[in-house]
């Protein structure tokens, strides 16, 4: 399996796709930071909605970056769907006919790649926070470690979901389209009280505590606890892995 991981790392980091997506993510992050920190300076009356102060602003920024779920979704779907659409996947499978190892390899490599990119984007937002946010105080090492491991878990969850769409749809375009549609609809469904109990978006925010900053927490009321957030996010990652496995096994037949 080490060989498979090394092969996937080459495919991920030596191709332009990952770097182009990362640049887009970083630029988008910079744009968001500009919106949140510079816009209030030109809008007189925003009712405290944009009062994002340090040190909570660092967590808020991390939450904004982790909310860019398109990144791990596209990365994961392109990693797998492209090979599933041709005989490359089936040929690879017969060369090393252990489907589980292939799935684990793609989970690990796509998650690692997404995590690195997200950490870079969080760093960009954090630099903007340092210079532009109101208030005082910085995060300590524990606080940064907190952000880092939560970012890893969130990326793993969305990568698993992206692989799930690839495993069933077996073509890059439809898989990306369906994955992004899912992300969009999932975000809309938080307006329905019944869905909030299992919403990945809300529980990611609960995990991070990012919506407690500024006025955004007013939108949804009380957030679930950290513990519940962790359980629900883990639950979604398990769902993604299981659907991926089922899709590969059933549609490979």
């Amino acid at each position: 399996m080490i060989g498979l991981i090394k092969a996937e790392l080459i495919k991920t980091f030596k191709r332009r796709t990952f770097w182009v997506l990362t640049i887009v993510l970083v630029l988008l992050t910079g744009f968001l930071a500009g919106i949140f920190y510079l816009l209030p300076r030109v809008i007189d009356d925003q009712g405290g909605f944009f009062e994002i102060q340090k040190p909570g602003a660092y967590i808020f920024g991390a939450g904004q970056v982790m909310g860019q779920t398109w990144f791990p979704l596209i990365l994961a779907t392109m990693a797998l769907a492209g090979e599933l659409a041709t005989s490359a996947w089936s040929t690879t499978l017969t060369r090393n006919s252990r489907r589980g190892q292939h799935l684990v390899t793609r989970l690990l490599t796509s998650t690692s790649a997404a995590w690195l990119a997200v950490l870079l984007a969080i760093a960009v937002f954090s630099v903007a926070t340092f210079f532009l946010a109101e208030g005082t105080g910085e995060l300590d090492a524990v606080g940064w470690w907190d952000i880092a491991w939560k970012a890893l878990l969130v990326q793993f969850t969305w990568v698993a979901l992206g692989l799930a769409f690839s495993a069933w749809l077996r073509s890059v375009g439809p898989a990306i389209g369906a994955a992004l549609a899912f992300s969009f609809v999932e975000g809309l469904l938080i307006l329905w009280e019944g869905f909030r109990e299992v919403s990945l978006s809300i529980h990611t925010s609960a995990l991070l505590g990012s919506l407690s900053v500024g006025g955004f927490g007013q939108i949804l009321g009380d957030l679930p606890s950290f513990r519940r957030g962790l359980i629900v996010v883990l639950g979604w990652s398990v769902v993604g892995v299981l659907i991926s496995w089922a899709g590969l096994k059933l549609r490979d037949a």
Binding site: I10, R15, T17, T91
Partner: peptide, 25 residues
């Protein structure tokens, strides 16, 4: 070699062989 070769676009010829060797072990 059956149907399309299954090469990885975006990689060099050498890297394609490296990926194939890693996968093959």
């Amino acid at each position: 070699i059956v149907e399309e070769p299954g090469l990885v676009k975006g990689l060099s010829g050498r890297d394609n062989l490296v990926v194939a060797a890693r996968t093959l072990g």
